[in-house]
Amino acid sequence: MKAEAWLFTGVAGFFAVTAGIYGWFAREPVGKAALVVAFLMASLVASFCWAQHVKLGRRPADDGSAEIAAGAGPLAFFAPASAYPLLTAAGAAVLALGVVYGTWLALIGFGVLAPGVAGFVFQYARREG
């Protein structure tokens, strides 16, 4: 993950510099906000990649002389069938419709979306390994 971490750190740095220059010369707030949000999103991905690099160390893909067989074996844990994706999608759809049709529908959508997201996050919280 080291190459990806450096890539997104560079992207975050680009958006930081661009936001600074744009903020100095521009008189409108929307572009400034968009560049700051782009910087924050790139920083989030970069920090995740750095944390994974520190946690997992070098991958075979990071070594130019590694054999293909070095990457064999289980990669990670992948969840079996779950109802939480369907619940989350339904909640997001109802929430989006609520933005159009009214607050009451948005609240229902949020009420359906929140358990779906919580289920995604905590479904395997007690799993070890």
Rank of each mutant, 00 (worst) to 15 (best):
G71W: 05
D63P: 01
S43R: 02
V45L: 12
F25N: 12
F39D: 05
G64E: 09
A79C: 05
H53E: 11
G91P: 07
L56R: 12
R59H: 08
G57T: 04
F110G: 15
G20T: 08
D63S: 05
L97Q: 10
Q123H: 13
F15M: 03
M41V: 14
A81I: 09
S82N: 08
L35S: 03
S82C: 05
A34R: 10
G57M: 06
A89Q: 12
A118W: 12
A76P: 00
V11H: 00
F39T: 13
G71A: 07
V36N: 00
V99K: 10
A42W: 04
F110P: 02
M41G: 02
V30E: 13
F14Q: 01
S65A: 13
W24T: 05
L113S: 05
G13P: 01
V112Q: 04
V36A: 11
F48H: 06
Q123K: 11
G119R: 03
T88R: 02
V17M: 08
F8T: 01
V94C: 07
F122T: 00
A83T: 07
A5L: 03
G20K: 04
R58I: 01
G23L: 02
A106H: 10
F14E: 00
L87H: 00
V117W: 10
P29H: 03
M41A: 11
F122N: 01
L95M: 12
M1G: 04
T9V: 06
V117F: 14
I68T: 10
A26F: 11
A5C: 06
P115E: 12
